[in-house]
Design a protein around this nucleic acid. Structure first.
Length: 459
RNA sequence: GGCCACGUGGCGGAGUGGUUACGCACCGGUCUGCAAAACCGGGUACGCCGGUUCAAUUCCGGCCGUGGCCUCCA
């Protein structure tokens, strides 16, 4: 088995070879903490959590370092804090806490390091000074700008030849830029905005541009060159392109990260998720209706590079499938299980989670055939679900029903079931069916067997 | 306008130059007072038009459609 990952830079699947197998290093762009995270934000978090787990499995838990940053300095943050009349620190702390809770509910491990932009201002300034010193950046009107023409092969990641970009650009070019493509490394702060002493000999205080933080934080925690850099596909340009430019030019290396991985975008009910359409789905509100496992599973049912149409129906189907797994594994307890090779192979093939899930279904099929609640297949299924962190403890129809409709009245159901049993012994089918209909209206379905009647919540 | 993806059966969704993905739904059966659940069995696919090939859903070209990036964005 060998791990293969699709690399956006080379546009091909390549065998993964870590720089140092004793210290595999991955950096993923994390949230800007100004509002509840939405289901689209959840995608990279879940996808790279699976990769993190796989890497830990392959290289050992102690040998993988996963860095996911927190962006806590940003215009949107400033605006939102002012809007809510709270301090920036309050807003970012509060939002970060919510994010942390949300992704924990989605079954994601905490990254090894979760660095904050505001705690890496010194590293950013160091990088900026280096870039200025080496002629890759310049100062203009208290800004520091990266000089894109100073880097020969700028645009390789996004496959954007410089000429084309300039021709197609619809950005208004700031007058102090030497070149239309140059981007901000540092900018002066307006009154009331967060500010720090500036680099590059600028007297006025300022704050960092967006891209420099990731170059600084990945450098600090992973070094000049590392193994994997991930994020949403929308970050390819300009964010990752600019990170590459900053890091490579600051360190005079040809490579920032050896594998660039990008997850696909997500739509909601066939439409782009946007505030104007009012179809923003936050993780928080989804978790009110569904266990995190269902959302995680729904996400993993699609390969990470494919687009996902996030629909109510697919959430329901995901819950249904997990209910089957729960059913077959409910008696396993602590019995150990093995991970099928096919499961690991599927994941090792560029994180083919849909194929991995088909392995789970095959195990479920074996459980069905064996008829033994403690079968090896059941143990393996449980272990496999655990490996993907599919927590089955909250996915039964009943638990989901209660989450959505409140606690069910068990005593009332029992009374009705008993009344129906009496009617049935009298062969009073009319009354018996009437009671069954009444229960059905409450979402309860009955199962008659030789040993009596059991009930459960309808799917 | 420039660049980049994607288009598989009713739905979701892998994959492959020739042989069953898988799941959900659906249909038939067993069971049942009738049901339900469960179990057994079943069918349907590869956007359109060309090309390459003994053979294409799979490779190449064109077209159409959808989405993304080029501005904050996962």
């Amino acid at each position: 088995m060998q791990l293969k990952l699709y690399d956006t830079l080379t546009r091909e699947k390549r065998v993964f070879e870590p720089i140092d197998p004793k210290r595999v290093r991955m950096y993923v762009c994390g949230p800007t903490v100004y509002d509840f995270a939405h289901i689209g934000n959840a995608r990279p978090v879940i996808v790279f959590d699976v990769l993190f787990r796989l890497l830990r499995h392959l290289y050992g838990e102690q040998h993988v370092t996963y860095v996911r940053n927190i962006t806590d300095v940003d215009d949107k943050i400033n605006a939102r804090a002012a809007e809510r009349g709270i301090s920036i620190r309050e807003l970012t702390e509060d939002t970060y806490k919510n994010f942390k809770d949300d992704v924990a509910a989605l079954g994601c491990l905490e990254p090894t390091v979760e660095p904050r932009a505001t705690e890496h201002i010194e590293e950013m300034k160091t990088l900026i000074d280096r870039l200025v010193a080496s002629g890759h950046a310049y100062v203009a009107e208290d800004h520091v700008l990266f000089s894109v023409p100073s880097m020969q092969d700028y645009g390789r990641l996004s496959k954007r030849p410089l000429d084309d970009m300039i021709a197609g650009a619809r950005v208004e070019v700031a007058p102090y830029k030497k070149d239309a493509m140059d981007f901000v490394l540092w900018k002066p702060s307006k009154p009331g905005e967060p500010s720090w002493p500036s680099p590059a000999g600028i007297a006025a205080e300022g704050r960092p541009g967006w891209h420099i933080e990731c170059s600084a934080m990945s450098w600090k925690h992973l070094g000049e060159t590392f193994d994997i850099h991930g994020g949403g596909i929308d970050l390819v340009f300009p964010h990752h392109e600019n990170e590459i430019a900053q890091s490579r030019c600051a360190f005079h290396t040809g490579t920032m990260a050896n594998y660039w991985m990008h997850n696909g975008f997500l739509q909601v009910e066939g439409e782009k998720m946007s505030k104007s359409l009012g179809n923003f789905v936050t993780i928080r509100e989804s978790l009110e209706r569904w266990p995190g496992t269902v959302l995680r599973f729904q996400m993993l049912k699609t390969h990470y590079r494919q687009p996902i149409d996030w629909t109510r129906k697919s959430t329901e189907t995901a819950a249904l499938e997990l209910g089957v797994f729960e059913n077959f594994t409910q008696f396993v307890g602590d019995r150990p299980g093995e991970l099928p090779n096919e499961l690991i192979d599927a994941l090792a093939d560029d994180l083919n989670t849909p194929l991995a899930i088909s392995v789970l279904h095959k195990l479920a099929e074996e459980c069905r055939k064996s008829g033994d609640p403690w079968s090896k297949a059941a143990c393996d299924l449980k272990a496999s679900c655990k490996f993907l962190e599919l927590d089955l403890s909250n996915v039964s129809h009943r638990k989901i029903y209660e989450r959505q409709h409140g606690k069910i009245d068990e005593d009332k159901i029992k009374r009705l079931v008993d009344a129906r049993a009496v009617a049935r012994t009298k062969r009073d089918w009319k009354e018996s069916d009437r009671i069954r209909d009444e229960l059905a209206a409450m979402g309860v379905v009955l199962k008659d067997s030789k040993d009596g009647t059991t009930w459960e919540i309808a799917r």
